[in-house]
Design a protein around this nucleic acid. Structure first.
Length: 203
DNA sequence: CTGACGATTCACT
DNA sequence: GTGAATCGTCAGC
């Protein structure tokens, strides 16, 4: 499959990249086993002017350092002490933009994903929600700072196309603390896709 | 060093 | 609908 090139990630519109990541395939190959899923839901985090971003107000720390790198790096961090969330760093060096992958449609390695979950359940539970995405693909903070040009971690274009009319934008989830910025339409998902997190979407 | 808390999920009422 | 799980990160002392 064709890995997305550096040029894809270094562009300066994080919301454009978040939108274009829909339909792409996120792949990990850890311990020799490949797991992959099609991205169906993303959220954009717009750097230092976005209160919902870890890098808001230029809060540069050890953890957020990866976001200041050039586009094409992976930013993974632990949330609530339990869940790992996977992000794609975008833009040029020094500009801490990132896209959170919130949901995938499992494609390959589903058996391993179910083992990682350690309990059975509907297929949707493997990919709906950012904590589930990282767990199913085996991603942890150990992978934070890697680039997406590895053999073990990358995003590919397999030719799948999402119609513009099928992309929906809305406010982000779980960022109520961000005040006005919580209302920004920075969440993108594929209309009607059953793997999108949250309540069922109207057709 | 200490304490508070989070870009969440799941089991249970 | 409500609450517990669980720990790295960060600000403050």
């Amino acid at each position: 499959m064709n890995k997305l090139p550096y040029d894809f990630y270094c562009r300066n519109s994080v919301t454009l990249i978040a939108r274009e990541l829909l339909g792409k395939v996120l792949v990990t190959q850890l311990d020799g086993v490949l797991t992959s899923g099609r991205i169906v839901e993303t959220e954009a985090y717009n750097g230092i002017v976005d209160k919902a971003s870890h890098a808001w107000n230029d809060r540069r720390t050890n953890r957020t350092e990866v976001m200041y790198k050039e586009g094409g790096h992976a930013y993974v961090y632990l949330c609530y002490g339990i869940h790992y969330l996977f992000n794609v760093v975008t833009n040029k060096p020094g500009i801490p933009n990132a896209v959170l992958v919130r949901a995938i449609e499992p494609l390959e390695g589903i058996t391993l994903m179910q083992q990682r979950k350690k309990s059975s359940g509907p297929l949707k539970s493997l990919g709906a929600g950012p904590g589930n995405v990282a767990r199913s693909l085996g991603l942890t903070t150990l992978h934070s700072g890697l680039t997406l040009f590895e053999d073990s971690l990358y995003i590919a274009d397999d030719g799948f196309r999402v119609k513009r009319s099928e992309i929906v934008a809305g406010p982000r989830i779980g960022v109520d603390y961000a005040g006005e910025d919580a209302l920004l339409p920075y969440r993108f998902f594929i209309k009607g896709n059953p793997f999108v997190s949250g309540k069922k979407q109207p057709a």
